[in-house]
Design a protein around this nucleic acid. Structure first.
Length: 456
RNA sequence: GUGGUCGUAGCUCAGUUGGUUAGAGCAUCAGAUUGUGGUUCUGAGGGUCGCGGGUUCGAAUCCCGUCUUCCACCCCA
């Protein structure tokens, strides 16, 4: 048992069944991305630590997987440097695994600024790694599917992303609710209650509202140094009800006189105006308690949750005005969202939303009756593949029972048999596994008959 | 990173207050059926009980450590 191989904590293997489902999700997402004019890029699994550190806050830095330098990395290090992780760390590790796709993308944009024509619309589907403690639905290696537009301030980008989200989940048949907020509004609120410096603490706290309740949120706000008066002023916002228009009107009264607040409100108004004429089929709500942890967001923020399954957000994103600034390229605004493929998988699995069709692998299998019979089949096998039908031949002349069992378990729809009698008559026997129905056809009409049967 | 929790066959789990050779179902493989699957029947293989150490005449069972699982924080997809 102990000798049995294993994989690291928080990582997973994906067998053929799971892969068929994962591919279904990825392919659906990719199709929609392309439909909206996004192009794929890929970046390396590892980045220089200088690229990654400091972009995700202190918490994020702790969750970076660091890669030990190669060779005898301790030989040139003096004892003083060995005393603490702060000094030793940079000496023995210069690379780390990417933590998300957004920061590598920012690096990519800056690095290839002269080759990219803006606005740049890219999508990226790759694994990311976090040294988090795993739990259900939280892994140390997981895939993100990011779409971003950089180099355009226009709010139509936000609106189109919401539309894209709608399309993806419509295709996957997942009922979702999308929540939208704006960091400028949150900043306005922080200013309104007289503690603009507490913006981050406020967002982190109120983000937990639906999870821990109002009392706990208020307790946390006080703990973070908010005055009683400030907490008091915040209450009406946390409980704001009504339509989006009504909420915006109320907000206007509270923070409309503040520069940043007015800007945030105007952005939200514009965005919701666009959405109204876009015929979005999922519910889209303005949620003032939506904050999202990532601190680089500066405008709109989005979060998408499955309506029928309790699960964290399955998709989220926002506008970041200065992500490339840290890499020396200021004034490059971007907006993007990320789909959490693993959670989408879990949602679809629990609602049994994976279509039968997506699970099929091989469509046709030739049974193997022996060497002679196999050579009789081989030319037809090739022709079938040329037609775009997936087909295989059982490689060994095993017992028919075993071969059929193989076909059955692999959910192959059609079995083609040719033994001595069929060979002599220039025929094939076609068996449909689901019904057990069997017909014998002339060799020259085999492909036609197969195609017919598979269409039905 | 903090606190807790779990670990017995490929999978799901039994296993008495520590007591001989650790069991079942499912799965796998073989046979009943030398050209017909998903049902049935028969049989077989597969475990140093997560790993390491300790207590004991004796440990799957008790203790310590470690790894893993899951959970609550933190944070997040």
């Amino acid at each position: 048992m102990a000798q049995k191989p294993a994989i690291p904590k928080g990582t997973r293997d994906f067998g053929p069944n799971v892969m068929a489902r994962r591919d279904y999700i990825f392919n659906t997402i990719k199709e929609v991305f392309k439909l909206y004019g996004f192009e794929p890029i890929e970046t390396p699994a590892m980045e220089n630590l200088s690229t990654l550190t400091g972009k995700y806050g202190d918490e994020g830095d702790k969750l970076l997987f660091r890669i030990l330098n190669s060779g005898d990395f301790l030989s040139n290090i003096n004892d003083a440097e060995k005393q603490s992780f702060e000094t030793l760390g940079p000496r023995i590790s210069e690379k780390g695994l990417r933590y998300d796709l957004t920061v590598p993308f920012a690096r990519f944009v800056v690095q290839y600024r002269n080759e990219i024509s803006f606005p740049f619309k890219r999508y990226q589907i790759q694994p990311v790694w976090r040294a988090d403690r795993p739990q259900k639905g939280r892994y140390r290696e997981f895939y993100q599917c990011d779409v971003d537009v950089v180099g355009s301030d226009a709010l139509i980008n936000e609106a189109e992303l919401v539309q894209l989200v709608d399309e993806v989940f419509k295709r996957l048949k997942i009922k979702v609710v999308t929540k939208i907020n704006n960091r400028k509004v949150l900043a306005g609120l922080a200013e309104y209650i007289g503690q603009p410096e507490a913006l981050i603490d406020i967002t982190v706290a109120i983000d937990k509202l639906d999870k821990i309740g109002i009392d706990q949120v208020n307790a946390e706000l006080r703990e973070k140094g908010l005055s009683d008066k400030a907490v008091e002023l915040l209450q009406p916002v946390l409980f704001m009800e009504g339509s989006t228009t009504e909420k915006l009107t109320m907000l206007e009264k509270l923070i409309g006189h503040l520069d940043i607040g007015a800007k945030g409100i105007a952005e939200l108004r514009q965005l919701f105006d666009y959405l109204r004429i876009m015929d979005i089929s999922m519910p889209v709500e303005l949620d003032l308690t939506l904050a999202r942890g990532l601190n680089y967001y500066t405008g709109a923020i989005f979060e998408v949750k499955a309506a029928e399954v309790p699960m964290g957000s399955i998709c989220g994103g926002g506008r970041y005005d200065n992500l490339t600034g840290v890499f020396g390229m200021p004034d490059m605004s971007g907006v993007g969202i990320s789909f959490g493929a693993d959670r989408i998988y879990d949602v679809m699995q629990s609602l049994e939303l994976f279509p039968e069709k997506a699970m099929q692998s091989t469509q046709i299998i030739f049974l193997n009756f022996g060497e002679k019979e196999m050579t009789y089949c081989l030319p037809f096998l090739q022709k079938i593949r040329e037609k775009g039908l997936s087909a295989e031949i059982f490689p060994d002349a095993a017992k028919i029972k075993k071969q059929l069992r193989y076909a059955d378990q692999k959910q192959i729809q059609i079995v083609v048999m040719a033994g001595e009698s069929e060979m002599d008559a220039g025929q094939f026997t076609i068996k449909q596994m689901q019904t057990g129905e069997q017909i014998t056809v002339a060799a020259q009409s085999l492909i036609e008959k197969l195609a017919e049967r598979l269409k039905a």
